[in-house]
């Protein structure tokens, strides 16, 4: 039965895909209008403009062709402003991972500290509550102004947006370790540091991992926007550059890849979370 259901859902997924592509094709299919201008003029403008229309939204076929072109040569490098899609994705992933790891290095120990002390928790709380809802991109001008390096600024933005979910989840996870377990440790006269490593950390690990998973999702969302602002390299820059060229087909390709990579990152962290999960 579960196998049959699995096949059924695959089939439904497929039907949805076909329906979406069909609707897309139908919506973008346009009648070839007769040229209303002289050939000398038509040679100077796009096909659609020559017949008095606007350049249409690309159809699925056009996007597929573009996608195929990217897949054939994803890692070309023709100077600082023209790199392959694969290379651009690699730049973005590197930025996200750097910013994310730095954030983890700060957020997890700090979260531990805050989670273990009620006073510290309440002292930090107002700052966290105010800073957490700030859009990471709002930090961008400030970062550029002070760090004076566009690439580092992008990483800083990733850092600042990934820190909050990890910090809060770590503090929450550490704070809600069952009192019984701590009491047992205390009865056995386990030193504080050892308690932290052997009791609190494993107990809070699933919550911490959830925080990390939320963080990397946000980081991946933010990097595209950040790179559209700073330019240079990365998938966000690619989107911006193709927007500059009004190449919607390329932008759709990029969107597809952004989605796939985002999913891959999420799956990776979900796997890692499963490693540290436990049943009570």
């Amino acid at each position: 039965m579960p196998v049959a259901r699995r096949w059924r859902s695959v089939l439904v997924s497929f039907v949805i895909l076909v329906l979406v592509l069909g609707a897309w094709q139908a919506a973008t299919h346009s009648e070839e209008a007769a040229a209303v201008v002289d050939p000398a003029y038509a040679a100077l403008v796009g096909n659609a403009a020559a017949s008095g229309g606007k350049t249409p939204f690309p159809g699925p076929g056009e996007v597929a062709a573009q996608l195929w072109r990217h897949l054939q040569d994803p890692f070309y490098d023709r100077g600082p402003n023209d790199k392959g899609l694969g290379l651009q994705l690699a730049y973005s992933i590197a930025r996200v991972l750097t910013g994310f790891l730095c954030a983890a290095l700060v957020a997890i120990p700090l979260g531990f500290l805050i989670g273990m002390s009620r006073t510290l928790y309440e002292a930090f709380d107002p700052f966290i509550q105010v800073l957490k809802p700030v859009s990471p991109l709002a930090w961008m001008p400030l970062a550029l102004y002070t760090i004076k390096d566009a690439n580092l600024s992008a990483m800083f933005v990733i850092f600042i947006c990934s820190i909050w979910p990890m910090l809060i989840n770590t503090a929450f996870g550490v704070g809600s370790v069952r009192q019984d377990w701590l009491n047992v440790a205390r009865t056995l006269e386990v030193p504080r540091l050892r308690t932290a490593c052997k009791v609190i950390l494993p107990a809070a690990a699933p919550t911490i991992m959830t925080g990390m998973r939320i963080s990397i999702g946000i980081a991946w969302l933010v990097i595209v926007a950040a790179e559209m602002l700073i330019g240079g390299t990365g998938i966000g820059y690619f989107v911006w550059n193709e927007w500059n060229n009004l190449s919607i087909a390329n932008i759709i390709c990029a969107i597809l890849f952004i989605g796939l990579i985002g999913m891959a990152l999420d799956v990776l962290l979900a796997r890692a979370a499963r490693l540290v999960s436990y049943r009570e």
Binding site: N81, P141, L144, L229, I230, W240, N241
Partner: peptide, 15 residues
């Protein structure tokens, strides 16, 4: 180096 906007080119030049 292609920059994404005037504010950015200014900030990068100032930096």
């Amino acid at each position: 180096d292609k920059a994404a906007g005037w504010a950015l080119i200014r900030d990068k030049a100032l930096a």
